[in-house]
Amino acid sequence: MRRCLSRSLLVCLLFATFARAELPPDYKVVLLTENFPPFNMADNNKNFAREKNISGLSADIVREMFKRADIKYTMTLRFPWDRIYNHTMNTANHGLFSTSLSEARKPLFKWVGPISKYESVLVGLDSSAPLKDLEEAKAYRIGAYQSAAVSQYIERLGFTPQNALRDQENIRKLQSGKIDYWATSDPVWRFYAKEQNATGLRTILSFHTSDLYLALNKDIPDEVVERLQAALDQMRSEGYGTCKKNPELC
């Protein structure tokens, strides 16, 4: 009995020590994101937005996560992805979402998630030839978004995609015959197609499912990562970011 009490007391002391750990009063995480609808996007459809002018499924989850973890933050949407990705990787107290976690990226950041997920697909015209697998697609011209996870994924498989600075450019390239297929994300491509009133497009091949995360600079304290992950886990248990709360994802 005495041994059990000692163990219980030790657990309580450890918990109390963790609970008392506090960040400096002025501590703040600088969050960066991009237009990646419906996960994160500027309300004014521009390539720059701040705070309340950023919306989306992931943006809402990240806000709630920081609120529950009691950690201050700022949120800015910028362009292009390549720049904010490298800036986050090289700048203390910065975070980036929505980001795919790959083996190549894993050691570059600290990670919280998953916050959402998406499907990697090849999009073509209604008249495009069907594809049985990605290997068959290597005989065609593939458009993609520069430095995006989908582009990096197919590059690792031996593709040399025609990378554009804006994902929307691939819709015009596809319709004008400059590329045969567009390597992108679902539901992202559907949002852009609707935005540009583009018709006659369809998913030709679905080839990979990816979770989306909050990527944090490696100098971020572990305490921050743990508090954010605990907040997200609690939110998940309540249905945030799942079919229960967001049937449009399913």
Score class of each variant (00 low, 15 high):
residue 6 S to E: 14
residue 8 S to I: 13
residue 11 V to L: 15
residue 14 L to P: 06
residue 30 V to G: 07
residue 31 L to S: 09
residue 32 L to G: 05
residue 39 F to W: 12
residue 40 N to Q: 15
residue 44 N to L: 05
residue 46 K to F: 08
residue 47 N to F: 10
residue 49 A to P: 00
residue 51 E to T: 03
residue 60 D to V: 13
residue 64 E to W: 01
residue 64 E to M: 10
residue 65 M to V: 03
residue 68 R to W: 04
residue 69 A to G: 10
residue 76 T to I: 13
residue 78 R to L: 11
residue 80 P to W: 08
residue 81 W to T: 00
residue 81 W to Y: 14
residue 83 R to K: 14
residue 84 I to D: 08
residue 84 I to H: 09
residue 85 Y to E: 01
residue 86 N to P: 06
residue 90 N to W: 15
residue 91 T to L: 01
residue 92 A to N: 15
residue 95 G to F: 06
residue 95 G to Y: 00
residue 97 F to V: 01
residue 100 S to E: 10
residue 100 S to W: 01
residue 102 S to R: 10
residue 103 E to I: 13
residue 110 K to R: 14
residue 113 G to A: 07
residue 114 P to S: 11
residue 116 S to M: 14
residue 120 S to T: 10
residue 123 V to Y: 05
residue 125 L to T: 00
residue 126 D to V: 09
residue 127 S to G: 00
residue 133 D to H: 03
residue 134 L to Q: 02
residue 140 Y to L: 00
residue 145 Y to L: 09
residue 147 S to Y: 12
residue 148 A to H: 10
residue 155 E to R: 11
residue 156 R to I: 01
residue 158 G to P: 08
residue 158 G to R: 10
residue 160 T to G: 12
residue 161 P to Q: 06
residue 162 Q to D: 14
residue 162 Q to V: 14
residue 164 A to R: 04
residue 168 Q to H: 09
residue 171 I to N: 05
residue 171 I to Q: 09
residue 175 Q to A: 07
residue 179 I to C: 04
residue 182 W to K: 02
residue 183 A to L: 07
residue 185 S to E: 12
residue 187 P to R: 02
residue 191 F to Y: 12
residue 194 K to S: 14
residue 195 E to W: 08
residue 214 L to D: 05
residue 215 A to E: 03
residue 215 A to N: 05
residue 216 L to N: 09
residue 217 N to S: 06
residue 221 P to W: 02
residue 221 P to C: 00
residue 224 V to P: 11
residue 227 R to E: 05
residue 229 Q to D: 03
residue 235 M to F: 07
residue 240 Y to E: 06
residue 240 Y to N: 03
residue 241 G to D: 02
residue 245 K to H: 08
residue 246 N to W: 13
residue 250 C to W: 11
